[in-house]
């Protein structure tokens, strides 16, 4: 069964899923979403230096029913790529790595009672932490929605 868990975490989708339409429409209004290769995102207002972070729609689909979210402490300083929480489904544990460096200015405590928000609205009300960025230029190392879409397509062909 341990193998099974690993398989779920590493298995590739038959075809890359597109990011939900609602995310696009919000993004078009004021926000841009940037993605990591580990399927985390940060949604950032161009005029601000903070943004909400979570796991992508693709990541939640791969994980399945989210039953528990391990939230980090508010106020904690994190660096990019640092383990900053965990998202658990029935079968698997997904580590949540910080997509950027900075300070956690809020955590989504809604997830304590309703972890399934990550399934229903992963890139919206299912956000995990809000981060004040140390260096806004760090987002240049991430993928924009177009690039992420391409990345998923490539991943699924590997």
């Amino acid at each position: 069964m341990q193998n099974l868990t690993l398989k779920i975490l590493t298995s590739k989708p038959k075809e890359a899923r597109l990011i939900t339409k609602s995310v696009f429409s919000i993004a078009q209004r004021f926000l841009t979403t940037y993605y990591t290769k580990a399927h985390e995102y940060i949604k950032i207002d161009e005029g601000k230096d903070s943004g909400k972070c979570g796991i992508s729609d693709h990541a939640q689909q791969e994980l399945g029913d989210v039953v528990f979210v391990d939230l980090p402490e508010k106020g904690r300083k994190i660096s990019k790529g640092e383990l900053s929480g965990a998202v658990e489904s029935v079968k698997a544990v997904g580590n949540f790595y910080a997509p950027v460096s900075g300070k956690i200015i809020s955590v989504n405590s809604e997830l304590e009672s309703t972890p399934s928000l990550i399934n229903s609205q992963p890139e919206d009300n299912g956000w995990i932490i809000e981060v004040q960025l140390d260096d806004k230029s760090e987002i240049n190392q991430l993928m924009n929605p177009e690039q992420y879409k391409k990345f998923l397509a490539e991943e699924s062909h590997k």
């Binding site: 099974l4 398989k7 779920i8 399945g64 039953v67 029935v90 079968k91």
Partner: peptide
């Protein structure tokens, strides 16, 4: 998924595991 050397379904698209 592969399970004990067999190609087996872990779930189906229409329902989540829960």
């Amino acid at each position: 998924v592969e399970f004990a050397g067999w190609d087996m379904p872990v779930k189906y698209d229409n329902l989540s595991i829960v």
